[in-house]
Design a protein around this nucleic acid. Structure first.
Length: 949
RNA sequence: GCCGGCGUACUCCAACUGGCAGAGAGGCGGCACUUAGAAUGCCGACAGUGCGGGUUCGAAUCCCGUCGCCGGCACCA
């Protein structure tokens, strides 16, 4: 073989290897196979029913694979984006070759703020820029050779798609959550219950009042409440879209709390199920933890403290500490603050409690004003406790103690009841406040021996906790909680409750580029859902789609939806069953998450014009698997970045559960298995002024320092981005090396879930491997295949079957890096064993088949050259033959006291005793033993022998 | 502060369920081929697994402590 590769030297024109595998040949091969796959519909996946019904073709177990679909931004893809897409493609191809029926498609998440901002910047309509971007993405993805069923592609901006987004909205709107049955039910059933007099006043209410009663129960409802208003973006945002320091997730603009009338979704009704069903999902622990944390379920008790004529309700997770409650705190916004404050300070009020004000009303007013001025950030940064006495005292229900009631901003109106009982002995925040205000501390849990901290939050026996009727002393925390809660319930002073941090989902945006709501407003100012036959409500093609510009810091600016400017569209006359009437259309649009909440359902049945997805088709692809315990159903594998841990993935689960409750889907969860792929990161370089310089032009290394244009630059590591001047695109890689090389490189640099740096200069290593395989099977001068029909040697067969067995396990575990390593190893063996002689066909063919998931184009080409007519996309994938996996003899390392001292070779089927005998007979072992008996002799079959002296 | 995760060669990564620390890629050094460069082939060096303890015949792997890094949450009662 070396004669072949050195042949070019003998040829004068220097172009002697027209069939050497390089970028040029790769491009040719890749284009032709991509065309062929498309022409032949190689990756079209049949359905059990509907237009693509082909039940015959649905052999083997089905697998539904999905990527988190991309947002088609104006800057196109960089090499980091396709990492997950290639990963799912490799798995899909592997499974397909193993006889599984694989569904894999790719759509586009195309509504949303950035598309609109980009459109405003470029002065082009978002519909146009979005469609251009999608075309560009499709071209970029196609050149990677992804085995998608392209018939199933769509964008969330397609009218035929968002018509069903609107339809699902109406399903949610037209339902309510029945807490008894723990599920959503059609709103008509609730109305019937009211009409039958089973639920409260009805007949005596006016029609509008009746509608209000019903509307208050809907899962999608209008609320006028404090929401996140972001003038910089000109829209309101969901809690999930606001960062911890009170700014917008996108754009980093300030966000203000404002009372505004907005659409909400009652996701809180599903709090329990959203937490409980996490246990049924095969998801990373980190994501489950984040969702649990976000829902923030905590169990405790609600307790009433009498205060004059009023009662202050508090939520506590520690009712066992009630005897240690020495004061109470209301949130500044709490409505009882005004009610309970007396006209004057009680005699002898501590100076520290009044802030130097003349009356409680003054104190409270001033404190409230100060609290309102503080931003979220101020509240967080300054954790020194502030507050002021209300002048009122409340009665502790367990011991009748009169305890002072304060207002303080460390208590939040948005959680629990907005009021707390303060137990400084068992809560550090209360301890800090009590210390600052000279309030007493009563410990009610015995701290552990040697405890020298302040508040004690651990477990221990209760102390100082008894009254005439009840005695908690000596009980552990859990038992004390149960005991006191039962007592409170009996006395009518409290009950056991569960609290959540989760808030309802703010569902409207004052933007143009989103799904219009299928809702109109009538002359009573009440919302009216449109009937299904009036869907879709199309987004009007308007010229003035830009959001109203606001000063980002102007908290008092007013949201103004762009659609409201279009009076012709807004004002409609419709006959909604009671004659033609005038209505105004809802002018808000849905948030970007709406489409992604259900898109996985649309891939299943994208051509369906009657339903969002045929029920039978849904059941086939997403249905519960009875062979798995407690399986909730859902997509078999969903791959994407961890950044959607609580946004998209929580919203989507919520919608799916509503659809399940209403009987529209058979599965209880959208995504059975979730996998977070790592990120491809990159180095960026800044010059002395802190400006980014083109990363590609930087030279040097860590030891000698990095320079650009001979000036030293500083290296940083992180994202790939235009502004960082370190973007590498898949287009460049395909052009320089070919898609197969690029795919292989991305898959071989590490396991799927590990983030790693991009390194263009390493890509050549993957190219070299493909080149070596090609050279082993193809004559680089003639392009002729050159395999032999000879029987492979025994060691080759062992190498082959070892590779087959290993690669199966690796592909299944998404360890493509080690799969690639095993293929390289096998090919290295072939290079050595058959240099110049031609690789036996019976080894060449399985090698090519095993490469196909990773590098499909070159594999198809080699498969064809080996004389096969059809595509190898459907396999068969090689199966390892057990007989070649066991060697005749085994080499055992012999350890003496855990250190390798010698090696012996014994028959593979030797018994333990035979191995022991052989080990003891070894001269080095004998020397070490020096005639003595070993203390212990351990034989690990097939592994090693350890002699313990 | 709380929760989750990760520390193995110059770099990215392997090492089945505790069993010989090295599969693969890049880089580096050398040899062959070559007018030269590139490409190609061959050969080679480089870590005892962040640190300290423990369990074990045996620890990268399990346990305890500690340091460092990444991510999430955070005055949530």
């Amino acid at each position: 073989m070396s004669t072949d590769t050195t042949a070019p030297a003998a040829t004068p024109d220097g172009d002697a290897l027209p069939f050497r595998y390089g970028a040029g040949l790769a491009a040719q091969i890749e284009r032709s196979w991509q065309d062929r796959w498309e022409d032949e519909g190689t990756f079209h996946t049949p359905n059990p029913s509907g237009p693509w019904a082909d039940p015959q073709a649905l052999g083997g177990d089905k697998v539904y694979l999905m990527d988190m679909f991309p947002y088609p931004s104006g800057s196109g893809l960089h090499v980091g984006h396709p990492l997950g897409f290639i990963g799912t493609d490799v798995l899909g191809r592997y499974l397909r070759m193993n006889g599984r029926t694989v569904l894999h498609a790719m759509g586009f998440d195309a509504f949303g703020l950035p598309a609109e901002q980009y459109a405003v910047q470029t002065g082009t309509h978002p519909r146009k820029t979005t469609e251009d971007n999608i075309q560009r993405y499709k071209a970029q993805l196609r050149q990677l050779g992804l085995a998608h069923d392209e018939r199933r592609s769509f964008a969330t901006t397609d009218v035929e798609f968002y018509r069903w987004t609107q339809w699902i909205f109406l399903q949610i709107y037209n339902s309510w959550y029945d807490p008894q049955l723990q599920k959503a039910r059609p709103i008509a059933e609730l109305e019937a219950e009211y009409a039958a007099g089973k639920r409260g006043p009805w007949a005596e209410l006016s029609r509008v009042e009746q509608r209000q009663v019903i509307d208050d129960h809907r899962l999608a409802y209008i609320s006028e409440a404090a929401v996140n208003w972001c003038p910089g973006l000109g829209t309101v945002l969901a809690n999930e879209e606001v960062t911890a320091d009170g700014r917008s997730d996108r754009g980093n603009f300030p966000v203000f709390r404002r009372n505004l009338k907005q659409w909400m979704m009652r996701i809180t009704a599903y709090s329990d199920r959203l937490v409980a069903d996490l246990d049924r999902l095969d998801w990373p622990d980190s994501v489950k933890a984040m969702q649990r944390n976000w829902v923030g379920r905590s169990e405790g008790a609600q307790v009433r403290f009498g205060c004059g004529d009023a009662a202050i309700e508090v939520f506590t997770t520690r009712p066992d500490t009630l005897f240690g409650a020495t004061y109470m705190v209301l949130a500044p916004e709490h409505p009882l603050v005004d009610v309970i404050a007396p006209a004057a300070w009680p005699a002898g009020t501590d100076e520290r409690w009044t802030n130097g004000t003349a009356t409680p009303a003054d104190a409270v007013t001033a404190y409230r004003a100060a609290a309102a001025r503080k931003s979220e950030l101020d509240r967080q940064e300054n954790k020194d406790k502030t507050g002021v006495f209300t002048g009122a005292y409340a009665t502790n229900p367990v011991n009748g103690e009169q305890i002072p009631v304060f207002v303080a901003d460390y208590v939040l109106m948005g959680y629990g009841t907005g009021a707390i009982m303060a137990v400084p002995g068992q809560d550090q925040r209360d301890w800090d406040f009590a210390t600052a205000f000279g309030l007493p501390v009563i410990r009610t849990v015995q701290p552990t021996e040697g405890f020298d901290g302040e508040a004690f939050t651990g477990d221990g026996p209760a102390i100082n906790s008894a009254n005439a009727e009840i005695d908690l002393n000596g009980l552990g925390v859990d038992e004390a909680k149960r005991t006191i809660t039962a007592w409170l319930v009996e006395k009518g002073d409290g009950e056991s409750v569960t609290q959540y941090k989760l808030r309802d989902w703010l569902f409207s945006r004052q933007r143009y580029w989103g799904e219009p709501f299928p809702v109109v407003w009538d002359s009573d100012g009440m919302p009216v859902p449109l009937p299904d036959d009036q869907l879709p409500v199309e987004l009007p093609e308007i010229d003035d789609y830009a959001p109203t510009a606001h000063d980002p810091d102007d908290a008092n600016s007013e949201p103004e939806p762009p659609l409201s400017r279009n009076e012709d569209w807004v004002n409609v006359e419709l006959d909604l069953g009671d004659g033609p009437k005038h209505y105004r259309r809802e002018t808000n649009t849905m948030p970007q998450w709406a489409g992604s909440c259900w898109y996985y359902l649309r891939y299943l049945d994208p051509a369906n014009t009657e339903r969002f997805c045929d029920r039978e088709v849904e059941e086939y692809w997403l249905g519960k698997d009875p062979s798995r315990a407690n399986d909730p159903g859902g997509v078999d594998l969903y791959v994407g970045g961890v950044e959607h841990a609580v946004l998209h993935l929580l919203y989507s689960r919520f919608w799916h559960k509503v659809l399940y409750d209403l009987g529209h889907v058979s599965s209880e969860e959208p995504f059975r298995r979730l996998f977070n792929q790592g990120y491809i990161q990159a180095f960026a370089y800044t010059d002395s002024r802190g400006q980014y310089v083109p990363a590609e032009e930087v030279t040097g290394d860590e030891a000698s320092g990095f320079t650009w244009n001979n000036a030293p630059v500083r290296r940083e590591y992180g994202k790939m981005g235009k502004s960082l001047k370190n973007v590498v695109t898949p287009d460049e890689m395909c052009e320089r090396y070919g898609a197969d090389t690029f795919r292989l490189y991305e898959m071989s640099t590490g396991p799927m879930d590990v983030s790693r740096p991009w390194s263009t200069r390493d890509v050549v290593g993957s190219q070299r491997f493909l080149q070596r395989v090609w050279r082993n099977l193809v004559d680089e001068r003639t392009g002729e295949v050159r395999v032999s029909d000879a029987e492979p040697e025994a060691d080759t067969l062992r190498a082959l079957h070892k590779a087959i067995a290993g690669v199966h396990a690796d592909f299944e575990a998404l360890h493509y890096n080690t799969a690639a390593a095993k293929l390289i190893e096998l090919n290295n063996h072939l290079t050595k064993a058959y240099a110049g002689a031609g690789v036996p066909r019976s080894v060449a063919e399985p090698l090519v088949l095993m490469m196909a998931p990773l590098t499909p184009h070159i594999a198809e080409e080699l498969w064809a050259k080996l004389g096969h007519d059809g595509s190898l996309a459907y396999g068969p994938f090689p199966v390892a033959d057990e007989q070649y996996l066991v060697a005749d003899t085994v080499e055992y390392p012999i350890q003496v006291n855990g250190k390798v001292r010698s090696r012996i070779t014994v028959a593979a089927d030797a018994t333990q005793d035979e191995v022991k005998a052989a080990a003891l007979a070894d001269e080095k072992v004998a020397a070490a033993l020096d005639g003595k008996e070993p203390r212990k002799l351990i034989v690990v079959p097939g592994r090693l022998v350890n002699v313990v002296l």
